[in-house]
Design a protein around this nucleic acid. Sequence first.
DNA 1: TGACTATATGATTATGTGGTTATATAGAGA
DNA 2: TCTCTATATAACCACATAATCATATAGTCA
Lengths: 110, 110
Amino acid sequence: MAKTALNPQNLDSVATRFRILGVPLRLQILNELANGERTVTHLVEATGSTQPNVSKHLSTLLAHRLVKREKRGNSAFYSVSDPAVFKLCEIVCGNIERALEEERAAFTGG
Amino acid sequence: MAKTALNPQNLDSVATRFRILGVPLRLQILNELANGERTVTHLVEATGSTQPNVSKHLSTLLAHRLVKREKRGNSAFYSVSDPAVFKLCEIVCGNIERALEEERAAFTGG
DNA sequence: TGACTATATGATTATGTGGTTATATAGAGA
DNA sequence: TCTCTATATAACCACATAATCATATAGTCA
C-alpha cells in the first residue's frame, strides 16, 4: 500500500517539487505569501534579498505553479496557488523537532 | 497564524530536508523502504543504480536521520526512521495531480 | 590464514543552479 | 514625449552535488 505513494512516472515530478522547496529564500518567500498576496518589492524588503534574485525565484515558483501572479498597474502581485505547501512545511518542522527531541533524549537518557 | 509554519531558525533545516527529498533516486530508495527494511544489495537491484551510488545516498539519508541502519552479519539493513516522509510524498502527489487536473480543465474549459 | 561477499569511502568529473551585475521592458504620471 | 518606478531577464561566476570509478573495510566461511 505504501507503494501507491510514489510510482516511477511521477517520481521525477515529486523530486522536482521537493527541490523547488529546498531553497531557504524560496521558503522565505512562500512564508511571506502565507499572509496574503505581496508585490515583488515587498518580498525584496521582507527577505532582505535583491530584486533580481527574488524575481528569479518567483519565476521558478510560478513556472512550477506554486504561486500565481496578477499584474495590477505597475506592480506584480504574487500569491500562493496551493496552500498544501504549508502542510508540507508543518510536517517537516514536526520531523525536525522530533529529531531534536531524540537527540536531547540520547544525551540525557543514554 | 501561517507565520508559525516557518521561522528563520528552522528555515534552513526545512529547506535541507526538502533538498534531501529532491533527488529521484533517494525517493526511489525511500519508496522501496516503505515496504520494510532492505539491504543495500536489494536496493541496488530495485533501483537499478550502482552500489556505491546507493550507499552514498543511504549515507546522506542516514546523516539526516531519514533512515536508520542496522548491521546484521555481512549486511546492512536500512529502514525508514520517520514514516512522515510518505505523508509528504502523498501531499506532493496530490498537488501534482491537482495541477494536471487544472491543465486539463484549462484545455477543455477555456 | 585466504577467498569471497557486502558495504563504505575517497577522488574525480560533469552538471545544475543560486547569487550578482547590468540591462531591458513596461506601466504611471508629468 | 521624458522621467520615474516596478519588474523581468540575460550573462556571468561560484559552488554544491550526483554519478562514476577505484579502492578500502569488514564480515563469513572454508
